[in-house]
Write a protein that binds this DNA or RNA. Structure first.
Lengths: 215, 215
DNA sequence: TCCGTTACCGTACGCTGTATCTTATGGATA
DNA sequence: TATCCATAAGATACAGCGTACGGTAACGGA
C-alpha cells in the first residue's frame, strides 16, 4: 500500500493525540510509517501543510453534524461537535485561530454555521453576518483553548486541592495569600467545582443571545 | 551592567516584536545581549519561563489601565488596552490561552477585571462570576487571535483584492467558485471592508450584554 | 600565601526541518 | 530478450535549536 495524504494524516493525528504537537515530528511520523523522512515531502510541502491536513481531517469529523430545522439548533450542534473534537484531539486547539483554516471541510463547516446564523433574528446585512460569525468564532476558539489548557494543568498536577497547592502552590498560593488578589483568590478556591460542559453551554447560549438580539 | 531578568525580558520582547516568536531563540537572544547562550539559564529556568516573563511584562503594560467608577467602563478600558498590547506585540496572541498566566501583573489584571465584573448586574454568586469571567476571557482570546491572524495574512498577501486572489487565489478562489460555499463566498467578497476596531468593540459590548443580562 | 567557594563559560549531545545528491526499480521500446 | 530512460526511494548532510555538563577563573577568608 503506497502511502497517501490520508494515511499520513491519520498517522500524524494518532501521534499527536498520544504525545501532543511537540511529540509529532516529521522523522517520528516517517518512522511510524516505515519510511524515510524525506518520503513525506512527496505528499506534503511543509510541516505546516501537514498540520493543515490534520486540521481539516478534524473538520471533516465536525462536518458530520447534520443541519437542523432551527438555525439555533444547527449552530449548537456544530459547536458542540467542535468541542467534542477538541476534547478528543487536544492539539487541535493549539492550531485554533493560529492560521486561517481553508481546507474543504473547514469551509463546509464555516458555510453551515454562516448559513444558519444568517437566519438568526437581527442579522439583516452581510456586515451583521460578518460580525456575528466572527464573534461566535472568537468565543469558540477562546473557550476551547481555555478548557483544554485547564484540563492539561489539572492533569499534570491533579485535581485534589492540596496536591494542586503543592504543585502550583509554592508560588501561586503565596501570591494569593498576599491579599492583593482577593477576587481571584475567591474564584480559584470556590470556583473549581463547576462542570466544564455546563459552563461552556451556558456561556455559548449567553453569547448567542448577546450577538443576535441587537441589530 | 550585570544582566537581569528585566533586561533579558525587554531584549526578548524587542526580538519577538521584530521577528516573531519563531525568530526568538535562546542563542539569538544571548548574542543580542553579548553573552554566551548558557548565561541566560542563570536567570531563567527554561525557554518557556522566558516566555512567561515576556507575557507578564505585557500584562504590566495592560495593568496601567486605571479603575473607572462604572464597572463597564473599567472592563472596557482593560480590554481595549489588552487589544492595544496585542497589536503592538503580535506574538502575545500566540501565547494567549496557551498556558495559564500567573505572573504578578497578569494576576493584577485578572483581579481588576474580576472585581469590576462582580459588580455587574446579574452576577450574584461566585459561580456567576466564574462564568462571566471565563466567557469574557474566551472572547478576548479568540477575537484577538482572529484579528492578528487576519492582519498577518493580509500583510503577507496585500489587501488589494486581485493581489489577494492571486496569492491565496489559485486554491481559495477555485474553492469559492465551486458554488458549494455561497455564504462564505459572500462573506469573503463583501465583508472585507469592516473596520477591525469597530467590529471588536461592537462584539465586545454584545458579549458583555449577553453574559451580564441573564442571571 | 594558600585554599574553598562561587560565578562564569565553552563545548557537546541529541533533536529538529529540509535541500541535495545517489541509487534502485520498473516499464516501454529496439 | 536486452537496453535505456523516467521515476520513485533513499541516504547523507546542513544549519539551527534547547540545554546538560565539565572545566576555569576570580574572589573572599584564614
Amino acid at each position: 500500500m503506497p502511502l497517501s495524504r490520508a494515511k499520513i494524516a491519520t498517522a500524524a493525528i494518532r501521534l499527536a493525540d498520544a504525545h501532543g504537537l511537540d511529540g509529532l515530528s516529521i522523522r517520528k511520523l516517517a518512522k511510524e510509517l516505515g519510511v524515510g523522512p524525506m518520503r513525506l515531502y512527496d505528499y506534503v510541502l511543509n510541516r505546516s501543510e501537514l498540520l493543515d491536513l490534520m486540521v481539516d481531517a478534524v473538520y471533516a469529523q465536525i462536518a458530520e453534524a447534520g443541519r437542523r430545522s432551527e438555525w439555533r439548533a444547527t449552530v449548537l450542534a456544530i459547536v458542540h461537535r467542535t468541542r467534542d473534537a477538541a476534547l478528543e484531539h487536544e492539539w487541535f486547539v493549539d492550531l485554533l485561530g493560529g492560521r486561517p483554516h481553508l481546507g474543504p471541510h473547514a469551509l463546509a463547516v464555516g458555510e453551515s454555521t454562516a448559513a444558519a446564523l444568517s437566519e438568526a433574528p437581527g442579522v439583516r446585512s452581510v456586515d451583521d453576518l460578518q460580525r456575528v460569525v466572527s464573534a461566535l468564532d472568537a468565543f469558540i476558539v477562546g473557550a476551547l483553548r481555555r478548557e483544554i489548557t485547564e484540563r492539561r494543568t489539572t492533569r499534570s498536577t491533579g485535581t485534589d486541592v492540596t496536591a494542586w497547592q503543592t504543585a502550583l502552590g509554592p508560588y501561586l498560593t503565596r501570591m494569593l495569600e498576599t491579599g492583593r488578589y482577593p477576587t481571584v483568590a475567591r474564584l480559584v478556591i470556590d470556583g473549581a467545582h463547576l462542570d466544564a460542559e455546563a459552563t461552556f453551554h451556558h456561556n455559548l447560549t449567553a453569547v448567542l443571545d448577546g450577538i443576535t438580539s441587537r441589530a
